[in-house]
């Protein structure tokens, strides 16, 4: 009687939260926004949770935003100028090597962005930070854009070096997979009528997907194909001349600041958007009365 397994239990739809030993959840409120986003006073404990409060984040973001944008712009321009005009050309690859100053920072940033996505998912599932949900929604498209930039610049670099726009080498392939992982997250988080449910599903997906990042990292060693092995590692001296490494690091720093500036701006806009929505709903309700 397989289907009779649960026959003895009275039919109580939606009663499972009372039966299982779940931690207390946010009650699904009639308004699309959890109440935390509109209140101003929230007890904050610990440095991590302090800025999980949207109001506090808004104030911090307003202060930090110009600095992040300026640092990102200046460092990126300086690094690119240094790399494109001052740094020496490669003895083997000639001037074509200069696309590295876009390609490599984009590749680093793409992995870091997915890591950030997974960290947001963790914070969302464990502490139910509403801000982590918002950040995950906003990091996704930016991360996908950076990954696309990495793929495009890699393709442009591959044309003169390998004689083909695309080569099915391990690292290219794994960045392509990372791109699809980003796209899956972007679509999933937006495909639920209840945004909180979408955030939780996407958080789980990001945590599962982050297991793919080590595969990307070690794919070079595993599949050992056309792609040159890593020249920069944390444990060994770089196999790259310092005259090329410095502009690379400056550009990478500039890219990171620029990424942070875009994400902070998007999260601020999302918070404000939700406040406007809540205010308009409140006004509509007042008008009905």
């Amino acid at each position: 009687m397989g289907e009779g397994l649960v026959e003895g239990i009275p039919r109580r739809r939606g009663s499972r939260h009372a039966v299982t030993t779940d931690p207390p959840k946010r009650a699904p409120s009639p308004e699309p926004m959890p109440p935390e986003l509109t209140t101003t006073a929230v007890p904050a404990t610990g440095w991590l949770h302090r800025y999980a409060h949207p109001g506090r984040f808004l104030r911090l973001g307003a202060t930090v935003q110009p600095w992040l944008s300026a640092a990102g712009l200046i460092l990126t321009l300086a690094g690119l100028g240094w790399g494109l005009f001052i740094a020496p050309a490669d003895w083997q690859q000639g001037d074509a090597v200069r696309i590295m100053y876009v390609h490599v920072p984009a590749a680093w940033l793409a992995s870091a962005a997915y890591l950030a996505l997974a960290a947001c998912g963790f914070a969302s599932l464990v502490w139910r930070h509403p801000l982590a949900d918002l950040a995950a929604v906003e990091i996704g498209p930016v991360g996908a854009g950076v990954t696309a930039l990495c793929l495009a610049s890699g393709s442009l670099w591959g044309r003169p070096m390998w004689g083909a726009w695309w080569v099915w080498d391990a690292r290219l392939t794994s960045v392509l997979v990372l791109f699809f992982l980003f796209l899956g997250h972007v679509v999933l988080v937006r495909s639920f009528d209840d945004p909180a449910r979408g955030a939780r599903s996407a958080a789980i997906l990001a945590l599962v997907g982050v297991l793919d990042l080590p595969i990307i990292k070690f794919s070079v060693q595993w599949w050992n194909t056309l792609h040159q092995p890593d020249s920069i590692t944390l444990t060994a001296a770089p196999a790259m001349s310092l005259s090329m490494l410095w502009p690379l690091l400056v550009t990478a720093l500039g890219f990171s600041f620029g990424f942070a500036a875009i994400v902070v701006a998007r999260v601020r806009a999302a918070i404000l958007e939700q406040r406007v929505r809540v205010a308009m709903q409140r006004r509509a309700r007042m008008a009905e009365r």
Binding site: L181, S191, F192, V208
Partner: peptide, 17 residues
């Protein structure tokens, strides 16, 4: 999810690489 059927390949295939 809305369009759940369309989502499945996008979510499962990259993980199955």
């Amino acid at each position: 999810a809305r369009r759940g059927t369309l989502l499945l390949p996008l979510l499962a295939l990259p993980l199955a690489t």
